[in-house]
Design a protein around this nucleic acid. Sequence first.
DNA 1: CGACCAATTGAAACTTTTCAAATTGTGTGG
DNA 2: CCACACAATTTGAAAAGTTTCAATTGGTCG
Lengths: 254, 254
Amino acid sequence: MTNSTRVSRIVSREVADCQTCHLRALCVPQGLPLKDIAELNGIAPPLAPLKKHDALFRQGMPFTSLFAVRSGSLKQVTTTYTNEHLVTGFFLPGDLVGLDAIAEECYPGSAVALETTTVCELPFERLNELSLRIPALRQRIYRDLSQEVHNERLMQRLLLNRTAEARLARFLLTMSASFRRRGYSPYRFQLAMTRGDIGNYLGLSLETVSRTLTRYQQHELVVIRGHDFHLCDMKALTRLSEACGRQGAAQQPS
Amino acid sequence: MTNSTRVSRIVSREVADCQTCHLRALCVPQGLPLKDIAELNGIAPPLAPLKKHDALFRQGMPFTSLFAVRSGSLKQVTTTYTNEHLVTGFFLPGDLVGLDAIAEECYPGSAVALETTTVCELPFERLNELSLRIPALRQRIYRDLSQEVHNERLMQRLLLNRTAEARLARFLLTMSASFRRRGYSPYRFQLAMTRGDIGNYLGLSLETVSRTLTRYQQHELVVIRGHDFHLCDMKALTRLSEACGRQGAAQQPS
DNA sequence: CGACCAATTGAAACTTTTCAAATTGTGTGG
DNA sequence: CCACACAATTTGAAAAGTTTCAATTGGTCG
């Protein structure tokens, strides 16, 4: 349909720096010894920048690499066999994109740039080989994968039993924490995705997202100007995100 | 409180080497054929049977092993820091319990038997050692973990945008598929968990679960007697589970 | 049998979606 | 650079779905 989402994956392998890229890429939750990181240098060339709406990879393409986000952001969209488009994740600088492809041999969703975005490619074959020689790397991959499993599990449940207010509060706080971990301000950040993307991700209609955000502003919890987010009252947001508005959760299940 | 949920985990560590068994043991999504469960006996000795409400492990205990379910069933319950109890998964014979603990060093939830249940213990250290020598095994672990990530991601989104009717239909079909994979009838099976457990898992109140199930019966899609489930009209259930009752999904997110 | 827990059912309150329309923002071509 | 078209956002009001509260039934176990 729209050719603006064509795949642009032209590799420009002339980049030497990338040391920082590796560090950030592979040290998201926890670091890898520096001497091991050095070994990775050869294998992660940054790709040509993606423009907004460009796909890093498309659902169904054979899995070859993980990608570490250097700058910008992406969303992952999975199209189900019933032809629904589900936003299954957002990726910020430092995130590894493609982890959920390892099992499939193919990417189970498309990664689409939300803005101008640059990534490093980490060919999985090479990672695999390296992981034999570098125990810490193997451990790291295990950890990241397992971490994902756990995060998804918990996030899912947390969202399911919650009101729009709580979901959105949690979303904002999660984003805030991401930025904090990366050394950016947790109080003020830009989110390139649309209200529709957020709603899709959280299981809410875009109208509900808009309304809820408006209500937050009226209560002076946040100030939002387009894609510019300003968290003013983290405490209140935290309280909201924890309020278990619906049952099914707090009870003793047996 | 109730001492019936005491931890029973007696390890017997005499391990004979059997690569195939380990490999098969790791075939989580597919489940483990019944005849192979016997084979596991040598390497991964079954623990003393758990009685209903017994915990296989408790949230926070140091992670040491994965467990393969031999018979019976369990639920995993995670208690959040806000003291909510979330049912994060159900495990049937052939399932691997504990995958999401690898990242944490500790089990991120408690595994509680829903009925009399037997499991085999798979010490993770051994798996880890073996994975060094057996590339296929390492691949298998990667794959299973990644599969989980993907499944969780998709399941989450699918549930989030759906009505109670669709969620429950999907739940039943998922269970049905599990039983089919294990060689049991996909049309008739027993689920030991309570309506409350199901509701908690799906993000619905137990009343809604009950009502929806009743409605299914009125339309003759199923026959349910307590924990005895009878799926009569799989097609209709499938149709229901696919109906995207709410927006946020079907739209082109950009 | 009685106590207790799970399941069912009803009715009111509440939340979210849906539909519709107005407004703002953005990028492109003249 | 402006104007236009198109996308994203906001807002309103009615409809739909879910939860909550409350009461009842059914089953199990000591």
